[in-house]
Simulated scan of single mutants.
Amino acid sequence: MRVVVVSKSPPVIVRPSSSSVVPLTRVTEKLSSFDKPYALSLVTSFLVFEHPVHDAANTTKRALSYALVHYYPFTARMIVADDDGEFHMRCHGECVTFVAASANCTLKDAKLLEVSNGETMTSTLLDDLAVNSPAESYCPGDPLLLMQVTEFTCDGFVLGVTWNHGIADAVGMAQFLRAVGELACGFPFPSVIPARWDASLLSLPPFILELVASPEPLNHLIRIGISIPLSSINRIKVEFLERSNSQMCTMFEAVAAVLWQCRTRAIISDPESMALLSFAVNMCKHMGAKDGFYGNCIAIQQVVARSNTVVDADIVDLIKMIKRAKDEAAQPNQKEGVCKIIRTLDQQQRYNTLILSSWRNIGFEEHDFGGGMPARVMC
């Protein structure tokens, strides 16, 4: 197997192409209740483009500079304010970090176009395709956004984006990258007018905040690819339709039910112990977020059942449980009893917790930087 070598140029700073959008004085903005739990969290996504773009690195860097005119808070820094000791964003048009890189092989050679159980083979390579490893932690004062473009010998390229989760959730980042792609293609303005601080956004209830924050770093985890055949998913969807008065289930609900049951069967030691399924839900439509809002607006929904119930349940019944949890997203104030159970689980049986986050339909797969949409999206 060929050794893949990624050669990186020294990092450069990128600022908004127009200084007119930068505040003349340092502006400090508070984080929303949705932002606060993620102020020290980093997320990395990879967009694999199979078709070439002329001078991909410089094209992307220029478009990034144009996009920052409209999304200048990405140039801010996370700081701890003296008055309340909480994290705030300080905006004065600092910069974001950009790296141009090249690989000594094709995308196919690097197995970046394969979606299979062999994804673990690319773990080390993925770390090389981003400015920061996903396992690295964020420190106050670090850039909120880091971007790397790695060009391969086949003229394809990988866009690796690492960002502080406190500035945007995945939906917000997808909106930002769509703007970068549009500007790279020659559009004069992004198609969506961005809004970062939205006074109309409702606050997240405090008891949910306790569940959102990760109790400890997750850098001991490994990457692994698991494929669920589409034929199995379609069979489950048909079965659910036939047994639920023509009600349909989504692909996420079918996949979540399968993973929850299979994992519980694999790890169960005490049939009476509680098994928890936890997943993120986009709350924009429930919290009154404006069109174009790109800050955080997600909450964590939970499904709790005894392990033996999950192991023995009919898959249709598990999907119904997941659906009920999703329906509760519009009524978060009714969940305090469930939250008390989950806080107890967090201390005693955290290993029984399965956390899922679906990137399907977020928008990462729709970006075009001039050569077509990505062949693959990874995180």
Rank of each mutant, 00 (worst) to 15 (best):
V4S: 12
P11K: 00
P11F: 02
I13Q: 07
P16G: 04
S18E: 15
S20A: 06
S20Y: 04
V21E: 01
V22I: 02
V22L: 02
T28C: 14
L31V: 06
F34M: 07
F34P: 07
F34W: 04
D35T: 13
K36M: 08
Y38T: 02
T44N: 09
E50S: 00
P52H: 10
V53C: 15
V53A: 10
H54W: 13
T59N: 08
T75P: 15
T75F: 11
A76K: 03
M78E: 11
I79H: 08
V80H: 15
A81G: 12
D84T: 15
D84A: 05
D84S: 08
C91E: 11
H92I: 15
V96A: 06
V96F: 12
F98D: 07
F98S: 05
A100H: 11
A100I: 06
A103E: 01
A103K: 13
C105R: 05
C105H: 03
T106L: 00
T106A: 00
K108L: 03
D109H: 01
K111D: 00
L113W: 00
V115R: 02
M121E: 00
L126W: 02
A130W: 01
A135S: 15
E136I: 15
S137V: 12
C139M: 15
P140M: 14
L145Y: 08
V158K: 06
I167K: 09
I167G: 04
A168T: 04
A168W: 15
D169W: 07
V171Y: 07
V171D: 14
G172I: 12
M173H: 04
L177E: 15
A179N: 13
F187I: 12
P190D: 07
V192T: 13
V192S: 06
P194T: 09
W197C: 09
S200D: 08
S203D: 00
S203V: 01
P206T: 03
F207E: 12
F207S: 04
E210N: 00
L211S: 09
V212I: 07
P215R: 03
N219M: 00
L221C: 03
I222A: 05
R223V: 10
I224W: 15
I226M: 10
I226D: 01
P229A: 05
S232D: 02
K237W: 00
L241G: 12
E242L: 03
E242G: 05
S244N: 13
S246D: 05
M248I: 02
W260T: 14
Q261A: 11
C262M: 06
T264D: 08
I268M: 08
I268R: 09
S269P: 11
S273Y: 09
S273W: 10
A275D: 13
F279Q: 14
V281F: 12
N282M: 10
M287E: 05
M287F: 05
K290N: 04
F293Y: 02
I298K: 08
A305C: 04
S307R: 06
S307Q: 01
V311K: 02
I315K: 13
D317W: 10
I319S: 10
R324P: 13
R324D: 08
D327S: 02
Q331P: 03
N333P: 02
E336A: 09
V338K: 14
I342N: 05
T344Q: 10
Q349M: 12
R350W: 02
T353Y: 15
L354M: 14
L354G: 05
I355K: 03
W359I: 14
R360E: 05
M373I: 07
M373L: 14
C379F: 03
